[in-house]
């Protein structure tokens, strides 16, 4: 069984590295990291992820900008995106997996447990979310 390819975009290298370590330790994930959001499209085109984890607040291009660029790209527009953000709180949550629907899409509030992250990824890929 081929691994699930995750592109983690966050300006904080520690954050992407931590996600990579945790998700890959689960076995079925392969994680590529982007810390300079202007490199998001180029990396996505090269890596061809199954899903993208996108930090909301970043310098240069923020999460919303990156999402728009992805949607404008014919080859990337269908890749599902999950936002990670420190801006919303847990009490805004509308479901068990701590998700918030906003205009931009599904938001996962930080801090987030790897278990929750995995659950979100699986549900998104299976079309539940």
């Amino acid at each position: 069984m081929s691994k699930i390819k995750v592109l983690a975009i966050d300006d904080e290298p520690g954050a992407t590295r931590m996600m990579k370590i945790n998700l890959e330790s689960l076995g079925q994930y392969q994680v590529e990291m982007v810390n300079d959001s202007t490199q998001s499209i180029a990396t996505a085109l090269r890596f061809r992820p199954d899903i993208i984890l996108l930090d909301m607040v970043m310098p240069n291009l923020d999460g919303g900008d990156v999402k728009r660029l992805l949607q404008e790209n014919e080859e990337l527009k269908d890749i599902p995106v999950l936002f990670l953000t420190a801006l919303v709180s847990d009490s805004d949550t509308s479901s068990d997996v701590s998700l918030v629907e906003s205009g931009d899409g599904i938001m996962i509030p930080k801090p987030v447990k790897t278990e929750v992250l995995r659950s979100c990824i699986e549900q998104t890929l299976s079309g539940v979310l």
Binding site: E12, G14, A15, M18, M19, I21, N22, S25, A86, P109, K110, P111, V112, K113, T114
Partner: peptide
């Protein structure tokens, strides 16, 4: 500013 480092600590402890 606090939630980002908290996120790292949480995932680090998990690991």
């Amino acid at each position: 500013e606090v939630k980002n480092p908290l996120n790292l600590i949480l995932q680090g402890v998990e690991y």
